[in-house]
Each structure stands twice: as structure tokens, then as C-alpha cells.
Amino acid sequence: MGSEMTSADLRVSIGPLKLKNPVMTASGTFGYAKEFEPYVNLHHLGAVVVKGISLEPRPGNPPPRIVETSCGMLNAIGLENVGVERFISEKMVSLQEVNVPVIVNILGDTLDDYREIAARLADVKGIAGIEVNISCPNVKKGGVAFGTVPGMAAAVTAAVKESSSVPVIVKLSPNVTDITEIARAVEDGGADGVSLINTLIGMAIDHRSRRPQLANVIGGLSGPAIKPVALRMVYQVAKAVSIPVIGIGGIESTEDVLEFLLAGATAVQIGTANFVNPRASEEAVAGLASYVAEQKLESIREIIGGLIIP
């Protein structure tokens, strides 16, 4: 792992956010990073994205919340989190000790919620960026998800951008007809980058009991099963916008990371794979370093968007 890792140039930039390598961990799959300290050298990672934070604490959905499906899993955690105040006073303190850029994932029910969380986080030390989860329902607009209507997606982006002091990444929902339309809207709203994809809405049924396998009935699909969809969306969005794209969805290995970079992603996030192999993110960083050395590249940036279409 060691030698190439320091010599290979893996640096990438998400707008003003400079990362030492393109590998981050995805929100909701890496806790508040501390959980992974026994297994991962956190400072080897490009960044960590923490579990989504709302204004007030949320208890989340009743059990069962997760169920495994073919090559993937469904989750309906219900955005359980400690709320922004406790996040700042408790979780952020331990995150500040870890030598890795921290990106805080935020969510809300209204535009004002998003604006206020961003404002509360604005002068907290140690936050490298904000990732805005727009897959949540807008309670003031009849529960339509912010991320499914271009105008609402742009408005959330602008609201967060206005009250925040760090780079803002908007995390796109794949549960839309045309994801490029939403991507363009958040670019217009001022986003410094987009990350995609969030989970695909799915469902699992137990035919014997005739009941849904999740208490919430439906949930978000993640893991290797969604990789082809994620790659396609990253490819389309990277062509549609000029801000950097962060690829997410079913990434398990260095090879998967390379595929996303070729499709046009500047960086990636590893999610569900952390549950299976807690070292997946760090191993991908080492793998990229070896790849750059083997291929005699000047830097990993050379392959971004390098897909060859014969």
C-alpha cells in the first residue's frame, strides 16, 4: 500500500474543495467515521461524508429497517439522526480529531430547514463541505421530493449556498424521469458539484406471510445491484453540466472506481460496500495509486471522462 500511495498524484478538486484523492465514503454508510477507526486509516481517505443531519433529532422508522435483496439491500432507516445541535456539540468534536476532510450531509422538510441547518454549520470548525440530500419530501409542497422538481431543487441549492461558507454539493435522487434536468437546475442554483446517485426506491415482499419485508413498505435500494444505473446517470450528468460530478452506487473495488471516473466522475463515494468490507474505501485509494503507477499516468485526473466510445 505504502510507497505508491504517497508518490502517485491522486488529487482532485470539487470546485474549491481540494481532495488528496477521489475516494470518499457515502452518507449513512460510514456513521460518524469513528465507528471505522479500528479498521481504516481515516486520513488516507479523500473525505468522509457523515450521516444526514436534520434541524431536530429524528427517531427514524420502526423495524425492520433493512432487508437484503439480490446483490443489494433495501433500507428504510427514516433518516434517524441526532439533530444539528448534538451533531455539533458531540459528533463534530470527535470528527475534528480525525485528520480527514469532513463533508456534512444535510436534509430538511422545508426550504427554511435547509437554510437554517446550513447557517448553524457555517461557523463550525472542521467542516470541509456540505452535501445536500434533496431526496426528502417538501412538506410545504404536498410532500413532493425536492429532488424531483427542477425549480425546487434549484431553490434548495440557492438557499444552502446563501447561508453556507463552504463548498456545497447537491446529492441527486435517481427517482426522476430525467436526472440531467435536475442536475442543470442545481448547477444554475449555484452548486459547486453534484453527487449521484442516492438510493433507488424499491420494495421486497415475503410471499409466505404476504407482508412487505420493511415496516415502511418501501425503501432505498443500494449496493452492486444499482451500479449499472448509477454509471449511466453519472455518464449522462457529466455530459450535461460543467460542475464536477461525484459518482455513487454499488462501488466495491478499485475497478468500480475507475469505471465511474471513466464515465465522467471527478470523485466517488463508497456506500454499502463499507458494511461488507470495512476497509473497502482505503483499499480503493491504494488500488488507484497502483493503477496510476502501473499505467504511468501523470495523475488520476487523466482518466476522468476518458470513456472511449468506438
Binding site: 454508510t29 465507528e35 427514524g60 429497517r65 433493512i66
Partner: peptide
Amino acid sequence: ETSMACGMGACLGCIVPVEKGGY
């Protein structure tokens, strides 16, 4: 016994309802 994805506090899937409220 609950369903578990990670076993280490990251996925928040393994909840049990507690008497004082929440999980």
C-alpha cells in the same frame, strides 16, 4: 436478534424499541 447490515453502529438498521422512547 435483529436484522443487521454492518454490526458496528454505521447502518442504523438493527434497532429495538426502548421503554424511554425511540430505539
